[in-house]
């Protein structure tokens, strides 16, 4: 039973990280119908930004909590700037182009950003400072759930609550929902659609950056390529839950994380990805638009 609980938390931790990234995918898809393949790279840039900020601050002798908060803010702001710029440069000019064009542009952006970080930083793996201390009160159960797992779970939960509030109860949230429903109609009633899209990219990027910081601190290393696999997995989670749906992305991420953890724990880690993707295929066979996705009816 203890083993089950350990695996459960391990899966939840993974799921939380996937969720933070998957939200960006799903929000962007919901609003402009684009799969933003450069999103994994935004996550990676978030990890690098927090790495640089945290290293500088720890040299200056800041307390750990301050480093954590400042690094998270800096990563969120800097990644948002990237997300915003990527949208303006690579997607906005293609807003009325065929759907394939922005998709290719997104793949191009992903490759560009990866190589940019490779050249601007390094191809080596870098040691990431441990920003989450081992809490004293976690000591008795440290074997089951580590302090960083706890912080990841809590941070993700808090972020989810804030995001839900933002979308349900604020003006910009309302505008986002309206744009998602019908972009032309939203424009007609006076919503600045370009502004809404920018905000969506900014929020998605900030979430991914926080995910990058958390996981980098959890595993203790980063390099320029970490965004690729994390991005693919988060994208899978978003599709699993129903792309375009925010609760769907979260649900899909947790299902994916837990499947991977249990497949590794009870079967073999050789088949971790096999199980994860078999699940995806199965769900898509029975629910082609994902678990919580709405079936879209094409009007002819």
């Amino acid at each position: 039973m203890e083993y089950f609980i350990e695996l459960f938390f391990s899966g939840l931790t993974r799921g939380s990280i996937y969720a933070l990234i998957a939200l960006g995918y799903t929000m962007v898809y919901g609003i402009i119908g684009l799969i933003n393949f450069a999103h994994g790279e935004i996550y990676m840039i978030g990890a690098f930004t927090s790495f640089i900020v945290a290293t500088v601050l720890s040299i200056l002798g800041f307390p750990l909590l301050a480093i954590f908060v400042i690094a998270a803010l800096a990563a969120a702001v800097w990644s948002s700037a990237y997300g915003f710029t990527v949208e303006k440069l690579a997607y906005k000019p293609l807003r009325n182009a065929p759907r394939l064009s922005p998709l290719i542009s997104a793949i191009g952006m992903s490759i560009f950003l990866q190589n940019y970080v490779l050249l601007a930083q390094t191809s080596d793996f870098m040691p990431f400072p441990q920003l989450i201390p081992e809490f004293g009160f976690m000591e008795p159960i440290a074997g089951i759930i580590g302090s960083s797992d706890l912080v990841i779970l809590l941070t993700t939960a808090v972020v989810m609550v804030i995001l839900t509030w933002l979308i349900k109860f604020t003006r910009i949230g309302k505008a986002m929902r309206a744009t998602a429903q019908d972009r032309t109609m939203a424009m007609l009633v006076g919503i600045n659609v370009n502004h809404v899209i920018s905000v969506t990219f900014i929020i998605g990027s900030a979430l991914a950056a926080i995910g990058g910081l958390l996981i980098a601190s959890h595993v203790g290393q980063i390099n320029f390529f970490i965004g690729f696999i994390a991005g693919i997995k988060a994208f899978t989670a978003a599709v699993l839950g129903g792309i375009g749906s925010i609760p769907g992305a979260v649900l899909g991420s947790f299902i994916l994380g837990l499947t991977e953890a249990f497949a590794t724990g009870y079967v073999s880690s050789d088949y971790e990805d096999v199980f994860a993707f078999s699940l995806l295929v199965l769900i898509l066979i029975f629910r082609p638009s994902g678990l919580l996705g709405k079936a879209t009816i094409e009007k002819v």
Binding site: Y3, E6, L7, S10, G11, T13, R14, I17, Y18, D149, I215, H218, V219, I229, A230, K233, E260, A261, F262, T264, G265, S269, E272
Partner: peptide, 9 residues
């Protein structure tokens, strides 16, 4: 992303 499940194993 991480290897905690393998580590548990």
């Amino acid at each position: 992303v991480d290897y905690s499940a393998v580590v548990q194993k």
